[in-house]
Every structure is written in C-alpha cells, then in structure tokens.
Design a protein around this nucleic acid. Structure first.
Lengths: 136, 136
DNA sequence: CTCCTAAATGAGAATGACTATCATTTACAA
DNA sequence: TTGTAAATGATAGTCATTCTCATTTAGGAG
C-alpha cells in the first residue's frame, strides 16, 4: 500500500460522484457519504469538491435552486434541469458536437475549457402534476 | 398618459438591461441605475429582476462567481464566461440549432422552456495576462 | 519507538448574495 | 379629500458556501 494517507473520505466522495446519476449538490453528497462514514464533516465535502473540480475530476453543472450541482462524468453531455422538482437528468440523446467546442476555441482567441449545455423546463412528472391542478 | 404608475425605476432597470451587453449581476444593475436615479433601493432591483424573469422579459444566464447574471436579450444565443475576470460575452457566431430545442421537447415528454449554452474558459485578455506569469 | 512535518479533517464562526418583512410613498379614481 | 392597490426603501433574516483554527492522521528521519 503506497501513499495511503487520509484518503478514505476523499475517495468515498469521489467514488460516489462517479457512481450516481443524480448530479448531487454538496448537501446531497454529504448526506449520502455520511451514511457510509458517519464522522465526516460538511466542510470536508465542500473542500474536496473544490479540489476535484480544480483537478478536473468532476464538473460543475451550475446552480439549481440556489445550490451548485456536481457531476462525476466529465465527458461533455447535455443536462435537463427540472424547474419543478429540481432534478437533473442526463440527455445522452442530444450531442453537442466537438465542432462547437472548437469553434469557441478559435473565436476571440479564447481558451475554452468547458462547454455546458442545459435545457430547463418541467420533467414529465412535474408536467403531469401541474396539469392536475387548474393552472394554465 | 395612460397607466403612468410608479414605473420610472422599473422601466429604468429594464431599459438598462436591454441596452447593455455586459450581462450584469444585480449589483451591477443597481450601481448603474443608481447613477441615474440615486434614491433607488437594492431591493427594488432584485424585486424587478424577479418580476421580469417571470414575465419572460429577461433571461437568467446562470451563476458566475456566486452571482446570477441577467440578459435583456431573450433570443436564444450562446455565452462565453471568462473564469478569470468573470466577464460574459455573447457568441453570436455559434448558433444552437432549433433542432436541439425541439429534440429536447420531444424527449421524455418534457416541457422545455429554455435552452442555455455557456462556454467557460479564459478570455483573450486573461489568457495573455496568464502567459505573462510563469504559470503552466 | 519517538519526534517531526505536512496534509486532511471537524466544528463552528464568518461571509455574502439573495429574500422576506413592513412601514411609507405614489398614482389614480371615486 | 379620501381610499386603493401597487411600488418602493430600509433593514432584518436566510442559507449555501467559505474561512479559521485546533486536532488528527500517516509516513519519514533519527
């Protein structure tokens, strides 16, 4: 075992982010990892999320209902954000071409690090729920 | 003059958002409108921004450096976000096809309200500035 | 084994963007 | 003049996130 420093909690956070498809917030990560490792602190979650993001191990999707959402899948893909229940879904059916990425790079001489396409709306559940009420 | 209620400040906020291309935050809007109308309150800015967004008069681009950015141009277009100086630029050269929008609509039976594509990176100024330093 | 160092962590205080509250002001109509 | 409903100003409150600092941990040197 080489270099077995205090990485148990760190690794637990990263592996959870790579397993789940919920695109969790920091609080959601905290709640889940705490069930495995009860003596983990919320500060540790925030700290490691920031570290992972700097290293490029995870990706920030954006702020949903006031909370940043994280994704362990760093390959470019599209997200659907439900404005009703705030769930975040992958949309693998929609592909954002590499062309867009390269186009951004060439324009203005910018260094384009990351491409983020989100589609906002109501998921099917929230749409059905809303139609049940008398709302236009 | 029909219906000339207390809309001076409201109109000032909206017209500023439609004039500028800076994609300002609430604080930036406040600072700019305050130079025209000194007795305006920050609460009024936040309140009207929320109202405009509900009405569809403006659009939220997303959170940049902890602050929501607003755009008076509601037609779908792509934004570049500089991670160095936090400026937000329009990228009219990159067009997100209506196809993507409709594709999202058809998938899952979702109600897609809004499509947001942002490209994150360093603008040319920040890229040049960084190369001046000895950072990889 | 003991001491040392540097990184990781826990707990809680601090920060700051945003929202809620409530009294006041405004425009218009009766 | 009086009443009204909406808009506003000032400020307290909220809450996600960051900061601070003392403590713990793992591994290396002696």
């Amino acid at each position: 075992m080489v270099n077995e420093k205090n990485y148990k909690k760190r690794d637990a956070i990263l592996s959870y982010l790579r397993q789940t498809h919920t695109h969790p917030s920091a609080e959601m990560v905290y709640g889940e990892v705490k069930s495995q490792i009860p003596d983990i602190s919320l500060a540790t979650v925030y700290r490691n999320l920031a570290t992972f993001r700097q290293r490029g191990d995870i990706v920030c999707i954006g702020t949903v209902n006031g909370m940043e959402r994280y994704d362990g899948n760093t390959r470019p893909h599209v997200h659907f954000i439900c404005e009703g229940c705030y769930k975040v879904l992958d949309m693998p059916e929609i592909s954002l071409s590499e062309q867009v990425y390269n186009q951004a790079r060439s324009l203005y001489g910018c260094t384009a690090n990351y491409c983020n396409l989100t589609i906002n709306g109501l998921c099917d559940e929230c749409t059905a729920h809303q139609e049940g009420e008398h709302i236009a």
